[in-house]
Design a binder for these strands. Structure first.
Length: 223
DNA sequence: TTCCTGATAA
DNA sequence: TTATCGGGAA
C-alpha cells in the first residue's frame, strides 16, 4: 500500500471510530448562518459554553441579524458579548466583519455565504481579526463549502498520532485532510466536530485520557 | 489554577 | 518569538 493510501485509510478509520463512539454531532449549533458567523468570532480561543451565554444575550435583544447588529456601536456590542471574553477585541472584529459585508456584499451575509469559495475566503481573511480557522468555519458551517477546518484540537490529535510534525502549519494540516478525503461538506462538517469532541473529552492539553480514547492508545506514541 | 472550537501587535 | 485580550467553569 502506498503512502497516500495509508494516510487515507488512517483518516477514514479515525473518522469511523469517532463516529461510532460519539454519534452525530449536529454542528454548527446555531439557528441561522448569520448566527454561525457571529459564533465563529466569539468562540476564538474561548469555551463554547461562554459563547452560548453571549449568543443568548444577543438573541434576547433580537440582535442576531446583520442590520440590527451593524446598528450598534462597538462599545454597545462589547457589553452584550461580555460573557464570551475578549469582548473589546471581539466587538472590533465583528464590526470589521460586518463592515466588509456592507461594502462587498451590500449588507447581505447570504451573498458572502453563497459566493465563490476562494473569493469569499480571500475577503474574509482581509478582515482584521478573521484568521484561517475563523474564515474556514464560516465557509464550511455557514456557506457549506467543502473546506476542512483546522484548530488546536486537530493539530494536537494529529501530532500525538504522528500524522504530522511539530512544525506543520495550518495550510499543511488542512491539506492533509483535503487531499486524502473526498471534498464533501457533510463529511468535513462531521469530522471537524468529532475532532473537537475528542480533544475536549480525551485528547486534552494536559492529562490526556489515552487509555479510554476511542482512537485507541496503541496509535499514540508520545502524549 | 488551568483551559477554552485564535488572531494580532509588539 | 512573545505578550495581549478575558469571563466562566472545573
Amino acid at each position: 500500500m502506498g503512502r497516500r493510501q495509508a494516510v487515507a485509510s488512517q483518516l477514514e478509520e479515525m473518522f469511523a471510530r469517532l463516529q461510532a463512539h460519539f454519534g452525530p454531532q449536529r454542528w454548527w449549533p446555531a439557528e441561522t448562518p448569520f448566527e454561525v458567523l457571529v459564533g465563529a468570532v466569539l468562540t476564538q480561543n474561548t469555551s463554547w459554553n461562554n459563547v452560548t451565554i453571549a449568543i443568548q444575550r444577543l438573541r434576547q435583544a433580537e440582535l442576531l441579524s446583520y442590520h440590527r447588529l451593524a446598528s450598534l456601536s462597538e462599545a454597545e456590542m462589547a457589553a452584550f458579548i461580555k460573557p464570551a471574553g475578549y469582548y473589546n477585541v471581539k466587538a472590533r472584529r465583528l464590526a470589521n466583519l460586518l463592515r466588509m459585508i456592507g461594502e462587498m456584499y451590500q449588507g447581505e451575509p447570504e451573498r458572502l455565504f453563497s459566493d465563490d469559495l476562494s473569493k469569499a475566503r480571500r475577503r474574509l481573511l482581509e478582515v482584521k481579526g478573521i484568521g484561517e480557522e475563523t474564515a474556514d468555519s464560516i465557509l464550511l458551517y455557514a456557506g457549506e463549502h467543502p473546506v476542512f477546518v483546522v484548530d488546536a484540537y486537530t493539530y494536537r490529535i494529529c501530532y500525538r498520532h504522528r500524522l504530522i510534525g511539530e512544525e506543520c502549519d495550518y495550510g499543511e494540516l488542512q491539506e492533509l485532510f483535503m487531499v486524502h478525503l473526498p471534498a464533501d461538506p457533510q463529511l468535513f462538517n462531521e469530522f471537524h466536530a468529532l475532532l473537537v469532541a475528542t480533544g475536549k473529552h480525551y485528547c486534552k492539553k494536559t492529562k490526556p485520557l489515552c487509555a479510554k480514547c476511542p482512537l485507541g492508545e496503541e496509535m499514540q506514541l508520545n502524549p
